[in-house]
Design a protein around this nucleic acid. Sequence first.
DNA 1: ACGGCCTCCTGACGGC
DNA 2: TGCCGTCAGGAGGCCG
Length: 274
Amino acid sequence: MPELPEVETVRRGLAPLITGRRFTGAVVRQPQLRQPVPADLGARIAGKRVDGVERRGKYLLIRASGETLLVHLGMSGRLRVLTSPPAPDRHDHVDLLLDGADGGGLMLRFHDPRRFGLILLCEPQGTHPLLANIGPEPLGDAFNGDYLFRASRGHRVAVKNFIMDSHVVAGVGNIYASEALFRAGIRPQTAAGRVSHPRYGLLAAAIRGTLEQAIACGGTTLRDFIGVGGHAGYFKQELQVYGRAGELCRVCGSAVKQLRIGQRSTFYCSVCQH
DNA sequence: ACGGCCTCCTGACGGC
DNA sequence: TGCCGTCAGGAGGCCG
């Protein structure tokens, strides 16, 4: 489900609703996520006041009085803020409870059918091994064509796989990899080490532009992504190639092609991309 | 070090 | 109707 724009949409929705509130506990119905939910989660967060919500790649970091909650939505995860929560369904695995100034509490409910998501507590310094080797943020200053060019020398992987590697750049998933390569005019199957310096300049700009535009749209809802308030993202209507196999390229009118690279569906235009 | 495949899990969909 | 294979927005781990 969520790539960087969707996680950022969640972060932006979440931060103003929970910042300043105090955790009162947690209900864990299903601890078996990608890694086990800490058994003492509720006890560890109880009484901690939320200072803010950050994002690193596709990870959310909820900072609260020196404790840091790490949340990843995996492929099918959702986070909702609820004031009067309905009875949990079978995939509502964790509820994080927060107090309310007027007595009305809030619930942060984690829902994840495939359970590839993650809820962990960080080390006292607020770090975690899962975050240690993530590449630069694509919206940050360290990410540019120069960086991609240098990082890619000698690599024979397809450039699409290269930009989807979180150690290379954080947060670019299957949708936005195809979209950014289309915008940059680069074929996804090209070996990363054979893409020129100027073309990496185009690609870095395309990645940044695509992600920023998707964030402005509240993310992409393909089937089930919703923000914390329950709203769908509307970047789907802006998609140029992803999910459009056989449909006409919006630029040149030829049929969008689909192939599999590294077990992932990949979409491109064979006229616009070389 | 690198690259490619597998894995975790559930659900939806198409074909027979 | 059901059963089976395939695919789905992630990403760490393992193997050669």
